[in-house]
Nucleic acid binder design. Sequence first.
DNA 1: TTAGTTTGTTGGTTCAACAGACAAAGTCGG
DNA 2: CCGACTTTGTCTGTTGAACCAACAAACTAA
Lengths: 420, 420
Amino acid sequence: MSLTDGRRPGSRGVAADHVSLRRNNLSVVLRHVRDLGPRSRARIAAETGLNKATVSSLVAELVDRGLLREGSADATRALGRPGQLVELDGTGICGVGAEINVDYLAVAALDLGGEVVFEKRVPKDIAHLDPSTTLDRLAALVSEAVAAVESRNGQLAGVTLAVPGLVQANTGELKLAPNLGWGELSVAQEMRARLNDPTYPLHVDNEANLAALAAYAELRRTEQESPHDLVLLTGAVGVGGGVVTGGHLLRGGGGYSGEVGHMPIAPPGRTCGCGRTGCWETVVGLTALLHKATDSDDPVRDPSLDVEQRLAGITRRALAGDKRTLSALKDVGTWLGIGGAILVNILNPDVLVLGGYFAVLGPWLKEPLEQAIRDHVIAPDGGGCRVVRSELGFAAAVRGGAEISLDQVFVDPTRIGVAS
Amino acid sequence: MSLTDGRRPGSRGVAADHVSLRRNNLSVVLRHVRDLGPRSRARIAAETGLNKATVSSLVAELVDRGLLREGSADATRALGRPGQLVELDGTGICGVGAEINVDYLAVAALDLGGEVVFEKRVPKDIAHLDPSTTLDRLAALVSEAVAAVESRNGQLAGVTLAVPGLVQANTGELKLAPNLGWGELSVAQEMRARLNDPTYPLHVDNEANLAALAAYAELRRTEQESPHDLVLLTGAVGVGGGVVTGGHLLRGGGGYSGEVGHMPIAPPGRTCGCGRTGCWETVVGLTALLHKATDSDDPVRDPSLDVEQRLAGITRRALAGDKRTLSALKDVGTWLGIGGAILVNILNPDVLVLGGYFAVLGPWLKEPLEQAIRDHVIAPDGGGCRVVRSELGFAAAVRGGAEISLDQVFVDPTRIGVAS
DNA sequence: TTAGTTTGTTGGTTCAACAGACAAAGTCGG
DNA sequence: CCGACTTTGTCTGTTGAACCAACAAACTAA
């Protein structure tokens, strides 16, 4: 029970005063209720190690700020005076996530409890559109979401944009997005201009990173024990990876981590979007699957149609037992497992989450994938790594963007103003 | 400037009280002096944001505990009253690291300032010795180091053992060490018994993890800006990897991270120590190099001789321009780069450190390695990743073991008793 | 009805950081 | 050499947040 527990010995840490002490404990109580559900003040005190009186004071402040609310009396306990349940009051505060991808734009707004307040996806062939027009459209979508939040009298915690490319999250600058055909571009600056210098925080991050965060948040909600380490693989035209360790995104020194799609492990064959050959995504990307499973005039290859509809076509054929489709899926699944085994050997995650089209076609990919992991991971039983399909599908990155904005509120609840 | 800055939004965090507040600030001041060198109280206050009076109080307590000492007057400043320099008082507290490897046992003791107090390495063909005898020998070595620390009236912060295999750091249990030929074994328990249930903390960790930590500590000392993310590759009979992010070891869910030696990326050829083919270490491990560069009766292949002497033989031949040796080195360097590129694509480290035999033969490996990274990493200029040779050679893991024990003191200075 | 149990609040205490005043110890200009 | 100025480090009192103990409230069980 100490501030320094869990502190990284290498990082120098930050001087603390009474204000930060209070902030820390507000955060502890708020996240305790988020993760473990409604409970009485006395129980929070017992579970966190804080004093009963302190918890009462902290809860009062969090209620004032609109982050917690008093619920019904606790009916479960038998003996003694029943406690007043305290629960998350999510409705007032919202986070917004938006996404640019190869064949669609999307936006979502979540409230503090993770409920979807607004969601929209627009199929669009972005690779054949210029960046400026695309950003105009995206800004319009974001404005819609912000308006939806404001119409509910919600406070906006922040907006985060997901881009499938090399992004420096701290500056919001895009370095390279091969599958969009975009080069260096200050996405954050461009979007701020289009949104008239908004007062809320606006951030930009890698699409797979945000999808990984969304998967992590989902598991935190649905399972009692949240995983320590998680890897997400998101399959689209390109293949992205996101790594969460101890609830924290692994970003790397320059912010360019998780570029698993370009691991040089495939035999030289088709040229990758980045111009190289041998990249992993040339054998597991959506394009690779389509080339293996279909002819060039097949409508499921048409990028102007919605991905989900195109994938539904593949699913139909697989369900019908089409030999060529099944063989292509098995092939992709095995390659997915070889790259997956590399990741598991390096990172030893508790969970490997399949996102994007990998999730949609998971029923056929999972078995060869798991076999390859068992075969190629040195740790017995794949190091205990579970493979799961993401429930969020192509909405993962926008959810993650909303989630990361909301996370700031949980880290520092004093960001949200007191109702005077 | 807050306790919550740098906190991971996912991890629930820990309730804080006055004691932990104090502990946090003691740690901040101590690490500030360690990382930035001797300085006056007023300067510490200005740089950390703490109040002058608070810093005086914190420094007084740290001096009482024998962690800091008052130095000479600050001669550099021109105007005003000169400050009294406060500096790290490392001499009293020591950490011990010990290592089992395929062809040697080693031990080292460092004081708080990172100075080597005791160091010893014993060449030994461990793979042909049974675990029990090996642990007996290691315990004897550790006892020597502990005795050396005690003879200097030093306090022992802890002992950490390095093992080249799958180790669960929290329990100290070894799951598998293919290159030693060891299976499941509670190394921590076995060693505690052999050391008569010592009162100091005894931990066990993966050899490459500790080597990575040592490299990180070394860079923190020698460079003004310590790297955020670091990957170390240690070449011996096997190949290990260690990852440090933000001063923190990446351990993975089960503690089995960094097993880069078994990434399935090589063409099927020689069988790996783990029984598979296609493992990376079958093309970059020491054995692979020796097979490429030498005949089977060559004395540099004799595992009963000291590795460093055997490597000196290779170095001589390379310096003399021996074609076969140079070609083997180039080959290994290129394969090293292909695996390195995978790691850089996934993790985007600021620094890639070559340890073990990779460091010794670095002059010949570095160029093809860097070329392969430039070729295969998607981020421009390899994501800004520098490749450096470790200065610590085969002593890296023992240094890291000592270092990790000492780190606990920096995280919580109240562990070290007050001189009443 | 009474004893026992648990909850949440209240008033007072403790502890650590902070703020401002101040003596100490130096520089600089005349 | 002296006074003005600057900086350091300590001292005194204040503030704020967590803690502790006592207690009323609300309920169960016998």
